[in-house]
Amino acid sequence: MVRTCVICNKERAIIKRPKTRQQACRECFYYVFETEIHNTIIDSKLFNKGDKVAIAASGGKDSTVLAYVLKLLNERYQYGIELFLLSIDEGITGYRDDSLETVKRNQQQYDLPLKIVSYSELYGWNMDQIVKEVGLKNNCTFCGVFRRQALDRGAVMLEVDHIVTGHNADDIAETVLMNIMRGDIARLSRCTEICTNGDECIRRSKPFKYTYEKEIVMYAYFKKLDYFSTECIYSPNSYRGHVRTFLKDLEGIRSIAIIDIIHSGEAFELKKGVKLPIQGVCKRCGYISSNEFCKACVLLEGLNRGLPKLGIGKTNKMLKKYGNMPEGMATIPKFMNKNSDSVSEQC
Protein backbone atom coordinates (compact mmCIF):
# COMPACT_ATOMS: atom_id res chain seq x y z
CA MET A 1 0.00 0.00 0.00
CA VAL A 2 1.34 3.38 -0.94
CA ARG A 3 1.06 5.73 1.99
CA THR A 4 -0.11 9.22 1.21
CA CYS A 5 1.16 12.32 2.88
CA VAL A 6 -1.41 13.38 5.48
CA ILE A 7 -0.47 17.00 5.04
CA CYS A 8 -1.07 17.47 1.31
CA ASN A 9 -3.13 14.31 0.78
CA LYS A 10 -1.47 13.96 -2.60
CA GLU A 11 2.16 12.90 -2.62
CA ARG A 12 3.58 9.66 -1.40
CA ALA A 13 4.70 9.82 2.23
CA ILE A 14 8.34 9.02 2.74
CA ILE A 15 8.83 9.79 6.40
CA LYS A 16 7.03 9.61 9.69
CA ARG A 17 7.58 12.95 11.33
CA PRO A 18 9.24 12.44 14.72
CA LYS A 19 7.52 15.46 16.23
CA THR A 20 3.96 14.55 15.33
CA ARG A 21 4.27 10.98 14.05
CA GLN A 22 2.45 12.16 10.93
CA GLN A 23 3.27 10.58 7.61
CA ALA A 24 4.59 13.21 5.29
CA CYS A 25 6.05 13.62 1.85
CA ARG A 26 9.38 15.27 1.27
CA GLU A 27 8.10 18.69 0.21
CA CYS A 28 5.56 18.95 3.02
CA PHE A 29 8.19 17.97 5.54
CA TYR A 30 10.52 20.69 4.24
CA TYR A 31 7.68 23.16 4.36
CA VAL A 32 6.52 22.48 7.93
CA PHE A 33 10.11 22.18 9.19
CA GLU A 34 11.14 25.53 7.74
CA THR A 35 7.88 27.30 8.55
CA GLU A 36 7.95 26.25 12.19
CA ILE A 37 11.40 27.79 12.48
CA HIS A 38 10.18 30.90 10.69
CA ASN A 39 7.21 31.13 13.10
CA THR A 40 9.57 30.83 16.03
CA ILE A 41 11.76 33.61 14.66
CA ILE A 42 8.79 35.88 13.99
CA ASP A 43 6.89 35.17 17.22
CA SER A 44 9.97 35.77 19.33
CA LYS A 45 10.98 38.81 17.27
CA LEU A 46 14.50 37.41 17.03
CA PHE A 47 15.84 39.63 14.28
CA ASN A 48 15.65 43.26 13.30
CA LYS A 49 16.25 44.46 9.78
CA GLY A 50 19.91 45.20 9.29
CA ASP A 51 21.11 42.92 12.11
CA LYS A 52 24.49 41.32 11.70
CA VAL A 53 24.10 37.75 12.86
CA ALA A 54 26.84 35.22 13.55
CA ILE A 55 25.94 31.55 13.27
CA ALA A 56 27.95 29.49 15.74
CA ALA A 57 29.14 26.87 13.26
CA SER A 58 30.77 23.66 14.34
CA GLY A 59 30.35 21.72 11.15
CA GLY A 60 27.90 19.39 12.87
CA LYS A 61 24.34 18.73 11.77
CA ASP A 62 22.64 21.40 13.89
CA SER A 63 24.74 24.35 12.89
CA THR A 64 24.98 23.25 9.27
CA VAL A 65 21.21 23.01 8.97
CA LEU A 66 20.89 26.29 10.87
CA ALA A 67 23.15 28.06 8.40
CA TYR A 68 21.27 26.57 5.45
CA VAL A 69 17.80 27.32 6.81
CA LEU A 70 18.62 30.83 8.00
CA LYS A 71 20.05 31.74 4.63
CA LEU A 72 16.97 30.33 2.95
CA LEU A 73 14.46 32.01 5.29
CA ASN A 74 16.34 35.30 5.14
CA GLU A 75 15.86 35.27 1.37
CA ARG A 76 12.33 33.87 1.41
CA TYR A 77 10.90 36.21 4.01
CA GLN A 78 13.33 39.10 3.59
CA TYR A 79 14.48 39.42 7.18
CA GLY A 80 17.18 41.72 5.89
CA ILE A 81 19.89 40.29 8.11
CA GLU A 82 23.53 39.81 7.30
CA LEU A 83 24.86 36.33 8.15
CA PHE A 84 28.33 35.21 9.23
CA LEU A 85 29.82 31.90 10.24
CA LEU A 86 31.70 31.86 13.52
CA SER A 87 33.68 28.77 14.44
CA ILE A 88 35.57 27.85 17.53
CA ASP A 89 38.66 25.69 17.23
CA GLU A 90 38.84 23.88 20.55
CA GLY A 91 41.90 21.98 19.37
CA ILE A 92 40.66 18.40 19.48
CA THR A 93 42.73 16.30 17.12
CA GLY A 94 40.71 13.93 14.99
CA TYR A 95 37.49 15.77 15.72
CA ARG A 96 37.55 19.52 15.47
CA ASP A 97 40.26 19.68 12.82
CA ASP A 98 38.06 17.50 10.59
CA SER A 99 34.84 19.31 11.37
CA LEU A 100 36.47 22.67 10.65
CA GLU A 101 37.12 21.41 7.14
CA THR A 102 33.35 20.97 6.84
CA VAL A 103 32.75 24.52 8.03
CA LYS A 104 35.22 25.78 5.43
CA ARG A 105 33.30 23.93 2.72
CA ASN A 106 30.02 25.37 4.11
CA GLN A 107 31.56 28.80 3.77
CA GLN A 108 31.99 28.15 0.05
CA GLN A 109 28.61 26.42 -0.38
CA TYR A 110 26.58 29.10 1.38
CA ASP A 111 28.83 31.96 0.44
CA LEU A 112 29.05 33.35 3.97
CA PRO A 113 32.06 35.02 5.63
CA LEU A 114 33.82 32.82 8.20
CA LYS A 115 35.78 33.64 11.34
CA ILE A 116 37.62 31.00 13.36
CA VAL A 117 38.67 31.66 16.96
CA SER A 118 40.91 29.12 18.62
CA TYR A 119 41.30 28.18 22.26
CA SER A 120 45.06 28.24 21.79
CA GLU A 121 45.20 31.87 20.72
CA LEU A 122 42.68 32.96 23.34
CA TYR A 123 43.66 30.90 26.36
CA GLY A 124 47.04 29.45 25.50
CA TRP A 125 45.66 25.94 25.92
CA ASN A 126 43.79 23.64 23.55
CA MET A 127 41.44 20.84 24.60
CA ASP A 128 43.97 18.09 23.85
CA GLN A 129 46.35 19.71 26.32
CA ILE A 130 43.58 20.35 28.84
CA VAL A 131 42.44 16.74 28.75
CA LYS A 132 46.03 15.65 29.27
CA GLU A 133 46.03 17.82 32.38
CA VAL A 134 42.56 17.21 33.85
CA GLY A 135 41.58 13.82 32.48
CA LEU A 136 38.18 12.95 31.06
CA LYS A 137 36.12 13.78 34.08
CA ASN A 138 35.63 17.54 34.03
CA ASN A 139 36.91 18.27 30.55
CA CYS A 140 33.44 19.24 29.30
CA THR A 141 33.30 21.97 31.93
CA PHE A 142 36.46 23.55 30.57
CA CYS A 143 35.27 23.22 27.02
CA GLY A 144 31.81 24.63 27.74
CA VAL A 145 33.06 27.62 29.70
CA PHE A 146 35.80 28.39 27.21
CA ARG A 147 33.52 28.03 24.22
CA ARG A 148 30.93 30.41 25.58
CA GLN A 149 33.51 33.16 26.01
CA ALA A 150 35.22 32.37 22.76
CA LEU A 151 31.93 32.83 20.88
CA ASP A 152 31.33 36.21 22.47
CA ARG A 153 34.86 37.28 21.73
CA GLY A 154 34.56 36.07 18.14
CA ALA A 155 31.31 37.98 17.82
CA VAL A 156 33.06 41.15 18.97
CA MET A 157 35.77 40.60 16.38
CA LEU A 158 33.13 40.15 13.67
CA GLU A 159 31.26 43.19 14.98
CA VAL A 160 27.94 41.35 14.95
CA ASP A 161 24.85 42.15 17.04
CA HIS A 162 23.67 38.66 17.56
CA ILE A 163 24.87 35.07 17.84
CA VAL A 164 22.58 32.21 16.89
CA THR A 165 23.39 28.69 18.04
CA GLY A 166 22.13 25.34 16.82
CA HIS A 167 20.74 24.23 20.18
CA ASN A 168 17.69 22.17 19.34
CA ALA A 169 14.60 21.16 21.31
CA ASP A 170 16.27 17.98 22.56
CA ASP A 171 19.26 19.98 23.84
CA ILE A 172 17.01 22.44 25.65
CA ALA A 173 14.83 19.71 27.16
CA GLU A 174 17.99 17.98 28.33
CA THR A 175 19.23 21.22 29.87
CA VAL A 176 15.93 21.74 31.70
CA LEU A 177 16.17 18.26 33.20
CA MET A 178 19.87 18.65 34.04
CA ASN A 179 19.22 21.95 35.79
CA ILE A 180 16.43 20.42 37.88
CA MET A 181 18.57 17.44 38.71
CA ARG A 182 21.57 19.40 39.85
CA GLY A 183 19.56 22.11 41.57
CA ASP A 184 20.77 24.93 39.37
CA ILE A 185 17.87 27.27 40.02
CA ALA A 186 19.41 30.28 38.31
CA ARG A 187 19.92 28.45 35.03
CA LEU A 188 16.62 26.60 35.32
CA SER A 189 14.72 29.84 35.24
CA ARG A 190 16.44 31.09 32.12
CA CYS A 191 17.49 28.03 30.11
CA THR A 192 14.28 27.98 28.10
CA GLU A 193 14.53 31.61 27.07
CA ILE A 194 14.89 31.64 23.34
CA CYS A 195 16.97 34.77 23.44
CA THR A 196 19.23 35.98 26.19
CA ASN A 197 20.07 39.61 26.20
CA GLY A 198 19.34 40.74 29.71
CA ASP A 199 22.62 39.78 31.24
CA GLU A 200 25.03 40.19 28.39
CA CYS A 201 25.51 42.55 25.57
CA ILE A 202 25.65 40.28 22.62
CA ARG A 203 22.24 38.78 22.00
CA ARG A 204 22.27 35.05 21.77
CA SER A 205 19.39 32.97 20.54
CA LYS A 206 18.28 29.51 19.59
CA PRO A 207 16.04 29.45 16.51
CA PHE A 208 15.85 25.63 16.79
CA LYS A 209 14.31 25.85 20.25
CA TYR A 210 11.27 23.87 19.13
CA THR A 211 12.97 21.80 16.44
CA TYR A 212 13.51 18.11 17.08
CA GLU A 213 17.00 16.74 16.73
CA LYS A 214 15.73 13.82 14.67
CA GLU A 215 14.05 16.19 12.22
CA ILE A 216 17.25 18.17 11.84
CA VAL A 217 19.03 14.95 10.92
CA MET A 218 16.24 14.05 8.50
CA TYR A 219 16.33 17.46 6.89
CA ALA A 220 20.08 17.33 6.49
CA TYR A 221 19.83 13.82 5.09
CA PHE A 222 17.18 14.55 2.48
CA LYS A 223 18.69 17.89 1.53
CA LYS A 224 22.05 16.12 1.29
CA LEU A 225 23.71 18.81 3.35
CA ASP A 226 27.41 18.51 3.93
CA TYR A 227 27.99 18.03 7.64
CA PHE A 228 30.37 16.29 9.99
CA SER A 229 28.74 13.60 12.05
CA THR A 230 31.30 12.24 14.46
CA GLU A 231 30.66 12.55 18.18
CA CYS A 232 33.22 14.48 20.16
CA ILE A 233 35.97 12.11 21.22
CA TYR A 234 35.95 13.57 24.72
CA SER A 235 32.35 12.60 25.30
CA PRO A 236 30.23 13.99 28.16
CA ASN A 237 30.10 12.50 31.59
CA SER A 238 27.96 9.53 32.45
CA TYR A 239 25.39 11.42 34.48
CA ARG A 240 24.43 13.47 31.45
CA GLY A 241 24.45 10.25 29.47
CA HIS A 242 21.74 8.86 31.74
CA VAL A 243 19.65 11.99 31.24
CA ARG A 244 20.07 11.71 27.48
CA THR A 245 18.94 8.09 27.48
CA PHE A 246 15.96 9.01 29.64
CA LEU A 247 14.97 11.75 27.21
CA LYS A 248 15.16 9.39 24.24
CA ASP A 249 12.99 6.88 26.12
CA LEU A 250 10.48 9.61 26.95
CA GLU A 251 10.34 10.58 23.31
CA GLY A 252 9.70 6.94 22.48
CA ILE A 253 6.73 6.85 24.85
CA ARG A 254 5.31 10.17 23.74
CA SER A 255 6.95 12.28 21.09
CA ILE A 256 5.52 15.55 22.37
CA ALA A 257 7.40 15.05 25.67
CA ILE A 258 10.37 17.06 24.36
CA ILE A 259 8.21 20.10 23.65
CA ASP A 260 6.34 19.52 26.90
CA ILE A 261 9.54 19.69 28.93
CA ILE A 262 10.40 23.02 27.32
CA HIS A 263 6.83 24.15 27.89
CA SER A 264 7.15 23.23 31.56
CA GLY A 265 10.50 24.97 31.79
CA GLU A 266 8.95 28.17 30.46
CA ALA A 267 6.34 28.03 33.21
CA PHE A 268 8.74 27.58 36.11
CA GLU A 269 8.74 30.49 38.46
CA LEU A 270 10.96 30.89 41.49
CA LYS A 271 9.63 31.56 44.95
CA LYS A 272 10.27 35.00 46.28
CA GLY A 273 13.38 35.06 48.38
CA VAL A 274 15.24 32.38 46.44
CA LYS A 275 18.74 33.75 46.08
CA LEU A 276 20.08 34.15 42.59
CA PRO A 277 23.59 35.16 41.66
CA ILE A 278 24.01 38.79 40.69
CA GLN A 279 25.68 39.38 37.36
CA GLY A 280 28.74 41.56 37.39
CA VAL A 281 31.97 41.52 35.44
CA CYS A 282 35.18 39.61 35.92
CA LYS A 283 37.82 41.69 37.68
CA ARG A 284 40.48 40.21 35.50
CA CYS A 285 39.17 40.05 31.94
CA GLY A 286 35.99 42.12 31.96
CA TYR A 287 33.72 39.28 30.89
CA ILE A 288 30.27 38.88 32.49
CA SER A 289 30.49 36.98 35.74
CA SER A 290 28.44 36.45 38.85
CA ASN A 291 31.62 36.06 40.87
CA GLU A 292 34.66 38.23 41.35
CA PHE A 293 36.39 36.36 38.58
CA CYS A 294 34.72 34.67 35.65
CA LYS A 295 34.75 30.91 35.42
CA ALA A 296 37.11 30.95 32.46
CA CYS A 297 39.72 32.97 34.34
CA VAL A 298 39.49 30.66 37.34
CA LEU A 299 39.73 27.55 35.19
CA LEU A 300 42.66 29.03 33.33
CA GLU A 301 44.40 30.00 36.54
CA GLY A 302 43.94 26.44 37.70
CA LEU A 303 45.50 25.12 34.51
CA ASN A 304 48.41 27.53 34.66
CA ARG A 305 49.10 26.82 38.31
CA GLY A 306 48.80 23.08 37.90
CA LEU A 307 45.63 23.00 40.02
CA PRO A 308 43.07 21.83 37.49
CA LYS A 309 40.41 21.38 40.21
CA LEU A 310 40.49 25.10 41.03
CA GLY A 311 37.55 25.99 38.83
CA ILE A 312 35.53 22.85 39.45
CA GLY A 313 32.97 23.27 42.15
CA LYS A 314 32.09 26.33 44.14
CA THR A 315 34.61 28.97 43.14
CA ASN A 316 34.85 30.73 46.48
CA LYS A 317 35.37 27.50 48.35
CA MET A 318 38.10 26.46 45.97
CA LEU A 319 39.86 29.80 46.08
CA LYS A 320 39.91 29.60 49.83
CA LYS A 321 41.44 26.19 49.63
CA TYR A 322 44.04 26.95 47.03
CA GLY A 323 44.74 30.58 47.70
CA ASN A 324 43.37 33.62 45.96
CA MET A 325 44.01 34.83 42.46
CA PRO A 326 46.71 37.49 42.38
CA GLU A 327 45.62 40.76 40.86
CA GLY A 328 46.68 42.11 37.54
CA MET A 329 47.45 38.80 35.89
CA ALA A 330 45.36 39.34 32.77
CA THR A 331 45.70 36.06 30.96
CA ILE A 332 42.73 36.33 28.65
CA PRO A 333 42.67 39.51 26.57
CA LYS A 334 40.37 42.18 27.99
CA PHE A 335 36.81 41.65 26.78
CA MET A 336 35.77 44.65 24.72
CA ASN A 337 32.45 45.27 23.10
CA LYS A 338 32.28 47.28 19.93
CA ASN A 339 30.05 49.92 21.47
CA SER A 340 31.90 50.55 24.66
CA ASP A 341 35.24 50.28 26.37
CA SER A 342 34.13 47.46 28.53
CA VAL A 343 31.00 45.37 28.70
CA SER A 344 30.40 46.36 32.25
CA GLU A 345 29.19 49.83 31.46
CA GLN A 346 26.46 48.55 29.20
CA CYS A 347 25.24 45.56 31.10
Binding site: A56, A57, S58, G60, D62, S63, N138, C140, T141, C143, G144, V145, R147, R148, T165, G166, H167, N168, D170, D171, E174, T175, M178, R182, D184, R187, C191, C232, P236, N237, Y239, R240, K295, G311, I312, G313
Partner: peptide
Protein backbone atom coordinates in the same frame (compact mmCIF):
# COMPACT_ATOMS: atom_id res chain seq x y z
CA UNK B 1 27.70 22.54 18.32
CA UNK B 2 28.19 20.73 21.55
CA UNK B 3 25.03 21.21 23.57
CA UNK B 4 26.80 21.35 26.87
CA UNK B 5 26.51 24.78 28.35
CA UNK B 6 29.05 26.43 30.46
CA UNK B 7 28.34 25.25 33.95
CA UNK B 8 30.37 22.66 35.73
CA UNK B 9 28.51 19.58 36.79
CA UNK B 10 29.67 18.26 40.07
CA UNK B 11 28.53 14.88 41.14
CA UNK B 12 31.32 13.79 43.37
Amino acid sequence: MCSIEDSPIIFD
